[in-house]
Every structure is written in structure tokens, then in C-alpha cells.
Amino acid sequence: MNNSIWTFANPHNFMRLSGVVAPWAAALAAITLAIGLGWSLFATPPDYQQKETIKIFFIHVPAAMMAVNIYAVMVIASLIGLIRSHPVSHLVAKAAAPIGAAFTLVAIITGALWGQPMWGAWWVWDARLTSVLILLFFYLGYLALWNAIEDPVKAADLASILCLVGSLFAFMSRYAVEFWNTLHQGASLSLDKESHVADVYYAPLLVMILGVYLLFIALLMVGVRTEIRARRLRALRIAQIGQADAALTRTAAAGNPASAQ
């Protein structure tokens, strides 16, 4: 029972675990990213086709991967949150969303900066680019729903429903966009790099991917810790307001019996 993963669904246990994991993940992320950036920027040869712009991939590919993976993390966390109603699970999904949106934005910007010299345009309505843009909309909608609803318990459940419905439609959009793209545009220079990446680029890319995973874990842990504390703060404040209200009515009743009626 003590070894079960559900132990960490308890906010108290989660705080203890994350307090240990967060600094380690942050330190490892810093080291890994420093190695990965140095390696990929200064120790890789230019590609014969893409020349030096290959260096953009070392940030673009991990960011695009995380954009999708973090949404998957949110879907799983939302599902667990809805089914087992663990508050920490909802908070994991909530804390993951801004991180995912940031990775998505980085993927889009670096993609545009790669596209300009290679395709001659900042933006083309390529199936992949369009899908990533759509993913950004899903992140923004999810965050907006959390912000719009005051009651955190309702917000958590509603956002989870949105996340699950959204995941179905994000999936469908991905295939719809591919279908749309192949019918109405010629094939553009493929962004499909995983399949034909040479070994010289593959190793530093792996280091970068490991680095962004560690960065995500560190940020997620800190974010969830903040959310747990914010919720406790809210509960305390509500309790205090309740006490203050009770005290006010008591003094009012004592001082002026007529006004208390």
C-alpha cells in the first residue's frame, strides 16, 4: 500500500516527494541542456542540404515533441482526476498547461525561423505547422477555462472534460488537416526529420530531448507545489472571512440588538 503510486495523490506526500525531486531535476536539466546546447551549436558540422540551419532543429524538434507529449500528460492527468477525483492529478494537468503552451510557441517560432531561409516563407499551411498551431489553441482554451471559473473544484472537473473532449478533436484535426493538405497543396520540403537524421546530429539531439524532459519535470513539480499551496491559501482565507463575518455579526448583535434582526 505504501509503495503504491496513489500515495502521491495525497497532497502531503506529493509535497514531500516534489520537494526532493524538483531541485534535482532542475540541476540535472541545467547540466544536460548546457551540454546539449554546447554540443549541438558548436560541435556539429553544417548539414549538406540545410547548411547551418540544422542547428535550429536541436531546439525545434524537442520543443515540438514536448508540445504533443505535455498534452498527453494533461489528458492522462485529467482522466485520473475525473475518475478517482484526486486533487493533485487535476493540479498536475493545470500546471502542465502553461509549460506545454510555451513549448508549442517555441516550436512554432523556431519552425517559422527555419522556414524562412529554407522555404522562402515565414509560414506555410503545411499539415504539421497547422496541427501545431491548432494544438496551441487547445492549450489556450484550456487555460482560459481554468481562469474563468472561480470555484477551483468545479474548474478542475470542467477543465478535465474540456481536455478530454479536446484531445479527441485535436487528434481528429491532425488527420483532417493532413487530408486537407494533401488534396490541395503540392508536397513541400518535408519537415520529417526523425527518420533521416544522421548520427552526428542524433546524439546531441537526444541530449537536448533529455534536457527538455528534465526541465519539464522541474517546472511541473514547482508549478504543482505552487498550486497546492495556492489552494491551501484559498481555503485559509475563506475560513478567515467566515470567522470575521461571524465576529462582525456577534458584535453587531451585542451592540445594537435592533440592527441584527
Binding site: F137, L140, L145, I161, L162, V165, F169, S173, V177
Partner: peptide
Amino acid sequence: ALTVGVRRGGLLLSLLVLPLYLP
């Protein structure tokens, strides 16, 4: 249904629903 409790949720609603309309 998601935004029924939100006052002036019009813009929020479009942000939530329009991506779902893409397919």
C-alpha cells in the same frame, strides 16, 4: 455547458468551441 456559470462567457466560449469546429 462548460461555460454556463461564467458571466459574459461569449469570448471564452468561442475560444473553447472554435478549435473543436476545425474538422
